[in-house]
C-alpha cells in the first residue's frame, strides 16, 4: 500500500518556543490514517507540546511561537483561512487527568454538540448514547445519566472524557498520557478502547509507558530533548532500534 496516500497529519520542520526557550527542534513526522501512533520519551522531552500543536492548544500559552508547518489533510492548520474552532472539532483530545465538567454525565457528553450548534434534542440523545457505548461506559452509567460526572471513579471519568470527545465526531483523537493517573484495570480498559477506536479514527497517543506503546501502537516516535530521535513501525523500533539513544532509552539506561 502506498503510504503517502494515507498521511493524515504531516509535521514539517517544526520548531516551537515558549518565550526564549526552544521546546521542539526541527521535528518532521507523518501520522498515518487509522493507525495508532505513540510518542514516547522521557518527561520534559516535548511529547505533550508536540501533540498540542495538532489541535492548536498551545496557542493558549502566552509568549509561544511556532515555526514550520503542521499539515492536516493537505492544508496548513495554522493558515489564516482555517478557524481554530473547526480544527479542534476535527482533532479531538483526551487529557492526562480526567477533566469532566462539574455537570451531569449526560450534559458532559452533550456539551460538544451544543457548543457546535446542534439543537435537535433527539439527535443529541442518540449521539450521547452512541458515544457512551463506543467509550465502553454505557452499561455502567445508563441508569444515572443525570448524576454529576464528578461522582464517577477516575477510570470512568476518563472514559466519559473519551465519550465526550467522540460525540463531536472528530477524525483524529489525541491522547495525552490518558492513563497517567489511572489504576492498571482502568488502564487496560482504555488501551482496549484505543485498539477498538482505531478502526474509525486516527489516534496519536503520548505515553511514558513503553509497554503501553508496544501493546497498542502501530507506529512509534521517540522524542528526546525536543528532537525526534527515531520514528518507525513499533515492532521495528522496539526490536531493532536504529539509533543508539533509542536503544539506551528502551533498555532503561536513562529516562
Amino acid at each position: 500500500m502506498d503510504k503517502s496516500q494515507n498521511i493524515r497529519i504531516r509535521v514539517d520542520e517544526v520548531n516551537f518556543f515558549y518565550g526564549p526557550r526552544q521546546i521542539l527542534n526541527r521535528i518532521s513526522l507523518d501520522i498515518f490514517n487509522q493507525c495508532v501512533t505513540a510518542i514516547i520519551g522521557p518527561s520534559g522531552c516535548g511529547k505533550s507540546t508536540l501533540i498540542r500543536l495538532f489541535n492548536r492548544m498551545n496557542e493558549l500559552v502566552p509568549h509561544s511561537r511556532l515555526e514550520g508547518k503542521i499539515i492536516l489533510d493537505g492544508e496548513d492548520i495554522n493558515s489564516s483561512l482555517r478557524n481554530v474552532v473547526d480544527i479542534r472539532k476535527l482533532v479531538g483530545m483526551v487529557f492526562q487527568k480526567p477533566n469532566p465538567f462539574p455537570k451531569s454525565i449526560y450534559e458532559n457528553v452533550a456539551y460538544g454538540l451544543e457548543v457546535n450548534g446542534v439543537k435537535d434534542k433527539l439527535f443529541i440523545e442518540e449521539k450521547v448514547t452512541d458515544s457512551l457505548k463506543k467509550a465502553a461506559l454505557w452499561d455502567e452509567v445508563k441508569d444515572r445519566l443525570e448524576e454529576s460526572a464528578l461522582r464517577l471513579s477516575g477510570g470512568q471519568q476518563q472514559r466519559l472524557c473519551i465519550a465526550r470527545c467522540l460525540a463531536v465526531e472528530p477524525e483524529v483523537i489525541l491522547f495525552d498520557e490518558p492513563c497517567a493517573s489511572l489504576d492498571p484495570i482502568s488502564t487496560k480498559k482504555i488501551e482496549e478502547l484505543c485498539w477498538e477506536l482505531k478502526k474509525d479514527y486516527t489516534i496519536v497517543i503520548v505515553t511514558h509507558n513503553l509497554q503501553q506503546a508496544a501493546r497498542i501502537a502501530d507506529y512509534t516516535a521517540f522524542l528526546y530533548l525536543g528532537e525526534l530521535i527515531e520514528f518507525g513501525e513499533t515492532d521495528k523500533l522496539f526490536t531493532v532500534p536504529q539509533n543508539k539513544k533509542t536503544e539506551e532509552y528502551l533498555t532503561g539506561k536513562f529516562g
Binding site: 492548544m57 479531538g92 487529557f95 487527568k97 465538567f101 456539551y111 460538544g112 457548543v115 470527545c165
Partner: peptide, 27 residues
Amino acid sequence: VPKSFREASLALGASRWQTLVKVIVPA
C-alpha cells in the same frame, strides 16, 4: 476554576465565549 475545564471545552471546539459562559461561569 481548574484550568482543565477550559482546556476540555476548547478542545471540543467551543469558542472562548462559549467556554466562558457555559463552563467557567457556571463552575
